[in-house]
């Protein structure tokens, strides 16, 4: 039952946003909301299939208008600060991928009308790898990446 719902919700790219609004309005219980979370994309073991599951395409177009701020060398892979900014117009989504991780897709940020394309968070990195940022505008997906050397991996094990 839940599975069937998830499939339906995944089909509409607007679904996630709509459900977010519904939760804010107190219309849906948290359990229902989980259905909007792109499980297949987050479970994917390589970058291509994660992006395919999330966006329907497996790579973006390289762009110089995306800035990734991350350390060149991260001493602790469990906490790697990453900031993604873009000067591209009409940014709808910002996606962060750690290419070397067991499940590379880290986060997807859906920007509302007022949001400025600039998000920061801290991520885990299992090993030295590229951090890839994808920026989705109204009709295209752009990408940029930056290598981060990891001294101690942060994915346990």
């Amino acid at each position: 039952m839940i599975d069937a719902k998830r499939r339906i919700l995944l089909k509409g790219s607007l679904a996630a946003g709509a459900v977010g609004v519904a939760v804010g309005a107190g219309l849906l219980a948290p359990r229902t909301v989980l259905a909007a979370w792109p499980q297949a994309a987050f479970d994917a073991k390589d970058v291509g299939s994660a992006l395919k599951a999330l966006l329907g395409i497996d790579a973006g177009e390289a762009s110089g208008d995306i800035t990734i701020k991350a350390p060149d060398i991260a001493e602790n892979g469990a906490v790697v600060p990453v900031t993604v900014e873009s000067t591209l117009p009409g940014v709808k989504t910002i996606i962060i991928v750690a290419e070397g991780n067991q499940t590379p897709l880290i986060a997807s940020f859906n920007l509302g009308a007022a949001a400025i394309p600039s998000v920061s968070t801290r991520i885990k990195m299992g090993k030295t790898a590229n951090v890839q940022a994808l920026v989705q505008t109204a009709d295209k997906t752009f990408t940029a990446s930056k290598e981060v050397k990891v001294t101690i991996g942060g994915c346990g094990g």
Binding site: V80, T103, I106, A107, F109, G112, V119
Partner: peptide, 21 residues
């Protein structure tokens, strides 16, 4: 709603989030 973030377990413990609008 200014921002909706969908996360995996790849975000660090005690998560930090910064954004602008």
């Amino acid at each position: 709603v200014v921002l909706t973030a969908l996360w995996s377990g790849g975000v660090s413990q005690n998560p930090y989030l910064a954004y602008k609008f």
